[in-house]
Design a binder for these strands. Structure first.
Lengths: 248, 248
DNA sequence: AAGGTTATTGACTGCTAGTCCATAACCCCG
DNA sequence: CGGGGTTATGGACTAGCAGTCAATAACCTT
């Protein structure tokens, strides 16, 4: 830059302070399907400008940790982090007035907990249905919406369902998880066929014990991998197929 | 947890400083198709630990601006920002050693410039082919890859092509832009049919003046909107169609 | 054994998008 | 002015994905 574009940006904005340091916090949108509905983990402020409102778990970024380490550390105060099947960065908010106490950047993460995990929560912490959020602090409601939107989008073109479903499950159980997460009806027949064809899930060979409820025992499935992978079939305008090799 | 694993964060990490302030910079991955190839805007460091290497445009975040304002301000030093047809946040990097001078967070943005815009660049600034990147500073090569990956993904399931294409264009011109951006062959016939069906582009009615090169004049198209929209058809497991209304 | 309940499978359909080829509309040249 | 070259356009054909529905299977209880 240097010569032609001097980087003392402040020159162009005389009124601005040049102090580039800001406070930075980390927030987490942790989602789980329970009781046929998608829930987000919130805790209740007990003082401060957003008194009695609910907030996303999080806290200040320390100077010797990465954002990912920070969110994992802070989440450990609220849930058993071993239950987190997936954690990814969502976005960074920087509105000047997002926190009335002053300038505060926030980097949000999306975390997912399988439906069969039950954490023991601290007294101030609860799961809330995302379709019926309480009054929330600052921009936390908006950040929660971003997280839910991200989850719903990725459920269609990735194998992210692994992070919401139990380790093994029947087609019906999977249908219930997807239906709650997506927020609309889902056909179990179609869902199972799609995920099998995409090679996201595979039958374990076992069936549910013909015990309880009457009805035919169901086949059990599991996700083939438990890390995120993109369904390449959703790349429209995909590269031309290489000519089929002779090895086959 | 919580009660079982009390954790006033600092307690568990005695060596850590609790100072939550960090330096923060903004970087931009600005992409444009020219000469049948996808290019990224870079400028050349002339001193410092990454001497002679190329860097993404950017600079420190000021305390009275949002991240979006900051990236727009800093980009103005490199290109005519009126040429930017799209700008979105990409990700925030926080590795402790990403800059050898010390802890420095970086929030990266993705910017797109239509293929027909020609900016006058400062002397230290140049467009580089993304398929042949020079030595780059710090983690800037990795951030560039993230930007290119994001662009390629969104070209398939959004109308983001509007930000790379000229205001009006023929099917061949659009094909050239997509092919360069995606990095693989694209069929003009198929591309045009897909984008028309998705209602992303529409014929203007005009045709190219039958002037220069011989050959039939081509129909001209334009994108119907110049802000990003998601192709809902890529929501697999989409909600059931409401029964057709009588109004039709 | 009959009837209720849940699961699984296959048939059928519509739509998307990939490929290929015939035809259209221009140019230049002889 | 007509033939041949060049680029553009549109139609035909195909394969595969996903949505729906109904028939069948495998359990239960009475």
């Amino acid at each position: 830059m240097s010569s032609s574009t001097p980087r003392s940006a402040a020159d162009t904005r005389p009124g601005a302070t040049t102090d580039p340091s800001t406070d930075h916090e980390v927030l987490a949108v942790v989602l789980q399907v329970t009781d046929a509905a998608l829930h987000v983990l919130l805790w209740q402020h007990d003082r401060g400008p957003a008194d009695r409102s609910w907030a996303l778990p999080g806290g200040p970024l320390m100077s010797d940790e990465t954002l990912g380490q920070s969110v994992a550390r802070q989440l450990a105060q609220k849930v058993d982090v071993r239950h987190l099947a997936h954690l990814e960065q969502l976005e960074t908010r920087s509105d000047l007035d997002r926190d009335p106490r002053g300038r505060l950047l926030a980097t949000a993460y999306l975390g997912l907990v399988p439906a069969d995990q039950r954490s023991i929560l601290p007294a101030d912490t609860r799961w809330h249905q995302v379709e019926a959020l309480p009054d929330m602090a600052f921009d936390h409601a908006s950040i929660t919406s971003s997280g839910v939107r991200r989850l719903r989008a990725k459920l269609s073109y990735t194998n992210l369902g692994f992070a919401l479903a139990p380790a093994v499950f029947t087609a019906s159980e999977l249908q219930a998880v997807y239906q709650a997460a997506l927020g609309h009806e889902v056909s179990a027949t179609n869902l199972k066929r799609i995920l099998v064809r995409r090679e996201q899930i595979a039958a374990t060979g076992a069936r549910t014990s013909p015990g309880r409820s009457g009805g035919r025992p169901a086949a059990e499935y599991r996700f083939r991998t438990r890390h995120i992978e993109v369904t390449d079939q959703f790349a429209v305008l995909r590269p031309p197929e290489p000519p089929r090799t002779l090895s086959e």
